[in-house]
Design a protein around this nucleic acid. Structure first.
Lengths: 201, 201
DNA sequence: CTAGTGATGTCTGTGACTGACGTCAGTCAC
DNA sequence: GTGACTGACGTCAGTCACAGACATCACTAG
């Protein structure tokens, strides 16, 4: 700990910016090494020269540290919604949102996303949080659709379907050996959804 | 507390059966009264003459007490899958599963479901757990579909869609003043989903 | 020069959860 | 019938996530 203090005193400004980012970086590293439950919030904080209390000032709970920055994903979805033509049917708006989002995950990001996802996949509590984030994303998306005049029920269904397509495509994208872009995968999954829901006898 | 002890000593058998159910009952009552976070596991346990340790022997965590019995819901879904004709397309199998599940929620159950849901709706941690349960239900459903020969991706999409339809219909069913049966609502939501996914220009 | 302001540290408490171990009534083999 | 066994529970002690209250101190506006 004294080493950390010295590190901090080395700087000219009192507090470096990007504290949350440094904590997130350290957390991901520790979670990947020792596992989520085996890593305490105190350890994460100390590894970047801070205290547990500061950790919890930046993140409402221990899981949250892995989801910092998710609002960018939401914004990308919403930007796609805005970009769709005004008279497009809901499913077309969702398709536009998917195209917008997928551009936020270029192939360079795939490897890092894999590490992160592997941590999440190994802990039920983190999976729970991830689902929750996607669920509120769906709610936000539905709100945006309704704001564009889409009917309540249709908006909810289209938004939920869109998020489901994204989630499945994203999981595909992270599979070992997968080469296709997220955009291609999302388009394919969406096509399959349309096909599945058309099959009724 | 002493009253609870006396109650227990009144019985001839040492331990009454249905401990989990009594804990669940007490928990729902306390959660509805004081709120989820304001109720401790110790309080729940003591209100039925047991200790905190016993509470956690029955439920892996405090939230879980509200989800005791969920396996019946899963079974109902699976029974519906089994009941579908062997050559039915995935969406038809899902429709059959929905018909099966909805019969497990007769109108008599609506009021109690409302109390429970209102507790869940007031606490993010509980909403998180609920989503998680529905997510693993979707996974189980997808497995069942694949076991019937449905293609991997189609199975996942159909299962996720089915659970989404169920969730939306269930929320509708609980709305104040809603009179339609869950079965009717689910059928309507499913119809709307098919319509939304057909609208593509 | 002085009164904020904001990010941090310190201290202390509560409650969720866990492991180890003890208790005791009912059961079952012998 | 008795003794080993089991299952559901209690007791005790511990860890850790998280939160409130308050102090600190570099920096900044006036």
């Amino acid at each position: 700990m004294s080493a950390a203090v010295i590190t901090r005193l080395d700087r000219m400004t009192r507090w470096e910016p990007g504290t949350a980012e440094r904590l997130q970086e350290a957390a991901l590293e520790l979670f990947a090494t020792r596992g989520f439950e085996q890593t305490t919030a105190t350890e994460i904080a100390q590894s970047v020269g801070l205290t547990e209390r500061t950790f919890f000032r930046h993140f409402s709970d221990k899981r949250e540290v892995l989801f910092h920055g998710q609002h960018l994903l939401v914004q990308a979805f919403l930007a796609g919604v805005e970009a769709a033509p005004p008279d497009a049917p809901p499913i077309e708006i969702v398709a536009a949102a998917l195209r917008s989002v997928t551009s936020f995950f270029p192939d360079e990001r795939r490897q890092r996303s894999r590490s992160r996802q592997s941590v999440i996949d190994q802990n039920p509590a983190l999976q729970e949080r991830e689902r929750h984030k996607l669920a509120s994303l769906a709610t936000t998306l539905a709100d945006a659709l309704r704001a564009r005049g889409v009917d309540e029920l249709a908006a909810t269904l289209a938004a939920e379907s869109g998020v489901t397509v994204f989630r499945i495509a994203f999981a595909q994208w992270l599979r070992e050996g997968e080469r296709r872009s997220l955009a291609d995968l999302a388009a394919e999954v969406l096509r399959e959804l349309l096909s599945v829901t058309r099959d009724r006898t």
